[in-house]
Amino acid sequence: MIRAGLDPISQFKIYKLAELKVGKYDLSFTNASFMMLLAVALIGLWMFFGTRKRELVPGRGQSFVEVTYEFVAGLVRSSAGADGLKFFPFVFSLFIFILFANMLGMIPIFFTTTSHIIVTFTLAMMVMALVVGYGVFKHGFKFLKIFWPSGIPIVILPFVSLLEVISFLSRPISLSVRLWANMLAGHILLKLFAGFCIMMVTAFGLFPGALGAIIPFTLTFALIPLEFLVAFVQAYVFALLTSVYLSDALHPGH
């Protein structure tokens, strides 16, 4: 059991909590599903207590909520423009969901939802679907202008267009892999270095083992704040890139 606990990969395992099968699809309620709903529930609680009083001069909880609101609103406004604010609820939901999922993952034993590529890829595809859907709905054929930048000499335009197409197609991949790989690598590293400490002590006893554990312990200690930073920064980057991509849907041909 101790060995299994030290395995840096086992923390990403999914367990079924309740069986659910629809046709050939296995939609069982798992520990991952539980963490997603937990994140949503915690966000709901946080928002509820932060917006309950609606004071003119905010208290601590209210100003925390308001600062988060202003932060994301400022992010959307600066990268997608003022008309990008119609996507504000979506970007805010993405940001806060990823942030809570990442932060919950930092708690020991808790499963990290965003460490699974399918989760981050689904989120990225939601963004791309919104970008393409809104772009085509709003601009029709003109949406293709995003592959046809203005002000480029006609000779190199095909190459630029090709590059634009490739970069557009690689967006969901880069968006999802960035978040997923950061969370996965961070958690593996943490688990690995923390596991080293235990291994050193169990393998060599308390006296030489604890000495050997000093370096991995220091690294673990240093990694934890870094991982908190990564957890925040990845949520921020995801929201930022979402706003940038949505800006394309709003103003193609820039």
Binding site: I14, Y25, L27, F29, T30, A32, S33, I118, V119
Partner: peptide, 8 residues
């Protein structure tokens, strides 16, 4: 678990 993950 892909389907279940996407679903939830």
């Amino acid at each position: 678990y892909f389907a279940g993950q996407i679903f939830w």
